[in-house]
Design a protein around this nucleic acid. Structure first.
Lengths: 339, 339
DNA sequence: ACCACGCTATGAATCGTTTCATCTCGTGAG
DNA sequence: CTCACGAGATGAAACGATTCATAGCGTGGT
């Protein structure tokens, strides 16, 4: 009921030593004689002392946390990335503050402002769009920022990304090879680099191929299951003659939504419409019709991003690196050979 | 490149006022004359000043964050809860620190220790098991702790939960009504209250019914898709005569894994084996065979938990409340009438 | 006997903000 | 002309840990 937290001074008194010694026990125990150390530890547990991290931070200058800013926590892709980040961070004794932007600039901005006030050791972010003064401001203040799931400018920043152009191309080539001639790209907003590049990749496959293939676009307001369902409803409402033979979705959430809506409307996948998703989240394989998808090394992405961040904070002569992973197409039932 | 952060003193000098005034501009702007305020704001943005939150916290005594400790971030159930929490927290200008325990006591403990050092305003936790000195210690220190997805002790603590006994009963009754006589419960570890209660609820339905129904148990090491797949493989390996006619899974991740493994082994759901899951995550409806599941009000759970926490921090005469929501059975294809 | 050295322990200064008692100054009332 | 008052502004104290220069003390070498 008390609600009082003893401080280091009270511990010192109780143990009959100075505050400096208590601090040493906490931070450099090897400097303290064993019996003194034991006495201090006893005092700490008797009083239930818990170090005040703000005071520590204030003195030391930086915190023991890193910020991870993602577009959507509900997307398993990001939670898997987060796991990778957490793994590395915990190993270093750092805490991860997970922030969710929901593709909303306002939220992104306020989260970054908060992280700046907290003096986090660094920020891992998947920015909503390209121009971001906020990120530059953070860097100016001395906080390393690593971009993930998006390539950074060489020499200027570290980044970890997966080649989305290639991913888009792989998906489209696969569909073209299967004989599809009417492909519909579903995704959005196009302000998201991922969306744009997956689309561009698909387009390049179509343009460089010999087959006569057409690709239309259906823009969604976000990349989640609900948006996918809506898109699917629209697709199902098209006159049969205008129905695409294949749909390439900007991510698996959208693909699952589309799949659900199409199935609900009585269309058969892949017989009437084939579907390819992106990310290969765990649920893709367990979907109504197991989903073909472009796999990204999610945890590795997170781990690598965290490691780059750590490198940037610890290395004196840091060289910015742009790591790019290659995606891999996983073919499942949803894109079996076309009609 | 500088990496220097100006402090409030430099802002004061630049604006030609005292530090107290700058602080007032930041915290109680109505006390400051308009032109002074403007001058200070100008100085702030010219210098790129960012308030140092540790110093603020040190002085004020508590932080502007709350901790949310969950069993598994990769489970959409928890991310939906987290969304609810975040919604309320952001509205109050609080940041949420999301911690993941992976059902590991060691991780739970170290996360709680960190949150204590951070002097968070409060903690929302879905504890791994019942006896937790760490939680008591936090409370003793004056940090409110609200339990979620688990009922608390009346008069002692706030909690938000969903009636898992009822959920288990609903699922089992549904299967019994459909004529199933061999039910297999898949889930674990049983140290998780959710698992135990869902099982108990199912058992009570069986015992109170008139039909002759048998329920076996297959324990999993965790509640995720991989564990479900393994369980599914084991089920598929059973001699046909021992095959259960229905499987009730402790959550949807396990159910999806089981579904995937059974389908892969050539068993038909629900014809050979019916499946009922728990949580009704978004992916349940989009599964290979749309999954029957016990729905919990996930976001509401999160919102309510956060609100209880806020109430506990702000109300002088706080009455602990234990909120219990009722789950709802959603029937889909995976549990259509049995063979 | 003296000095030097290593091992421990000390305590004051410091980090940057908030808070609050106090001061200044201009205005209006008496 | 004086006084009281209020709006604004001030600056020093406080928050609690860390750090570092310094002091104390015992030991071993000369």
């Amino acid at each position: 009921m008390a609600g009082s937290s003893p401080n280091i001074r009270e511990v010192a008194v109780r143990a009959g030593v100075s505050v400096g010694t208590v601090s040493n026990v906490l931070n450099r125990p090897e400097l303290v004689a064993e019996q003194t150390r034991e006495r201090v530890h006893a005092a700490i547990s008797e009083l239930g002392f818990v170090r005040n991290d703000s005071a520590r931070q204030l003195r030391v200058g930086r915190s023991r946390t890193i910020g991870l800013v993602v577009l959507d926590v509900a997307n398993p892709f990001f939670t898997d990335v987060a796991r990778g980040v957490e793994e590395v961070a915990n190993r270093e004794g750092l805490a991860v503050i997970l922030c969710n932007t929901d593709e909303d600039h306002h939220k992104e901005e306020s989260h970054l402002a908060l992280l700046a006030e907290m003096r986090v050791q660094g920020v891992l972010i998947n920015p909503i769009d390209e121009s971001d003064g906020r990120i530059a401001a953070l860097r100016e203040r001395g906080t390393p920022v690593v971009l993930f799931d998006r390539p950074g400018k060489p020499g200027e920043e570290c980044s970890v990304a997966v080649d989305d152009l290639l991913g888009g191309r792989l998906a489209a080539e696969h569909l073209i090879d299967a004989g599809h001639q009417q492909i519909l790209f579903v995704g959005g907003p196009f302000a998201l680099r991922q969306v744009q590049e997956r689309y561009d990749g698909a387009l390049s496959a179509i343009n460089s191929g010999t087959a006569d293939v057409r690709m239309d676009v259906m823009t969604t307001p976000a990349l989640n299951v609900a948006a996918g369902r809506e898109a699917g409803d629209q697709i199902a409402a098209l006159p049969r003659t205008e129905l695409p033979s294949a749909v390439f979705c900007a991510n698996d959430l959208v693909a699952l939504g589309v799949l659900q809506a199409l199935t609900h409307a009585g269309l058969r996948v892949p017989h009437d419409v084939a579907i390819v998703g992106y990310d290969d989240i765990d649920f893709a394989a367990a979907a109504a019709v197991p989903l073909s998808s472009v796999r990204q090394p999610r945890q590795l992405l997170g781990r690598t991003a965290a490691e780059l961040l750590l490198a940037e904070t610890s290395e004196a002569d840091h060289e910015h690196r742009q790591v790019v992973f290659e995606p891999e197409l996983i073919v499942r039932d949803s894109s079996a050979p076309s009609r």
